[in-house]
């Protein structure tokens, strides 16, 4: 029982963090906060990959120059490679999301989802009203 808890603890924390990010994305109306939530989600995914690649008693996957011939246990280099690139791609796409948020704030004067929807609705009704007055 205790062994299961310790063996799966990392994955459970990853899931809790993932759900924390997910909750921020779906429950919060502020677009900047949503981007931050996505970041939490993303970091939890990184942790999951790295956790899967770890080996009990392993070392970093760098060949020691003075290897004594004995078999050294290395951690799996593949998750490191995948996540290494994902982190940098992640920050570039986060920047894209933040740039969109800046443009939305300039266009609508707000970052709250509800207010943006209200403004959109008002614009739509204005448009349809304008069409009705012109058509007859």
């Amino acid at each position: 029982m205790l062994e299961t808890v310790f063996g799966l603890y990392n994955y459970w924390i990853v899931i809790i963090l993932m759900m924390a990010g997910f909750y921020t994305v779906i429950a919060r109306g502020n677009l900047a906060k949503k981007v931050i939530g996505l970041n939490i989600f993303q970091t939890s995914m990184f942790l999951m990959y790295i956790t899967m690649g770890a080996v009990e008693g392993g070392t970093a996957p760098i060949v020691a120059t003075s290897a004594e011939g004995g078999a050294t246990l290395y951690t799996n280099p593949l998750p490191s490679v995948l996540i290494l690139t994902a982190i940098v791609v992640g920050v570039a796409t986060t920047a894209l999301g933040l740039a969109l948020a800046v443009r939305i704030r300039e266009a609508y004067g707000t970052l709250e989802e509800d207010e943006i929807r209200l403004l959109e609705d008002r614009q739509d009704t204005l448009k349809t009203d304008g069409g009705q007055t012109v058509s007859p």
Binding site: F46, A54, I87
Partner: peptide, 23 residues
Amino acid sequence: VLDAVDVAFTEAAVGAGISTVLM
């Protein structure tokens, strides 16, 4: 702690540095 030093390096430079400044 999980022996992924390259990833730790990147996360410290990118996540704690550039992301914060951009936000």
